[in-house]
């Protein structure tokens, strides 16, 4: 269990305007005591990586419902790595077909959460990630 405030960036890359999921997650994580930086719709991978850097977040959560995840997610990861943020985990939420899931996990994504995921599960996952990171020093 960490005592410091966990900071999470919730971002919506790409062009779909469906932000309900992102907002539900943002709220659930806030209610779990986290500080959630919400950047709004239509973010480019560069914008997301830059926000993650400036805000010094522990985790980046991407919400994608447009089907463009195979394009967008690797770009976000690349833009983050280019900023020396390779140690910051990326989580993906949204409608992600099973066959894409493994591929994303192989490209530096820590977890993929589908639409039916209980928010508690996401909260616990983030707490575990942060605890591991803090233990590593």
């Amino acid at each position: 269990m960490t005592t410091r405030a966990v900071r999470v960036l919730i971002a919506k890359p790409g062009l779909d305007g469906h932000d309900r999921g992102a907002k539900v997650i943002a709220r659930a994580l806030r209610d779990a005591g986290m500080e959630v930086i919400y950047t709004g719709l239509r973010q480019t991978p560069e914008m997301i990586a830059e926000a993650a850097l400036q805000e010094d977040v522990d985790v980046v959560g991407l919400s994608i419902l447009s089907g463009a995840h195979m394009t967008l997610v690797p770009r976000v990861r690349e833009a983050m790595n280019a900023r020396d943020l390779s140690d910051v985990p990326v989580l993906v939420g949204g409608i992600i077909p099973d066959e894409d899931r493994d591929s994303l996990m192989g490209q530096g994504v820590a977890a993929v959460f589908g639409p039916a995921t209980p928010t508690d599960e996401i909260r616990d996952f983030i707490h575990r990630l942060v605890a591991e990171k803090d233990a590593d020093g």
Binding site: M34, I37, T39, E46, M47
Partner: peptide
């Protein structure tokens, strides 16, 4: 909860790059 939603960046998108 001690948590927070920090949403000021939404209005500052033009500065992002």
């Amino acid at each position: 909860s001690g948590g927070a939603i920090l949403g000021d960046r939404i209005r500052m998108v033009e500065l992002a790059g």
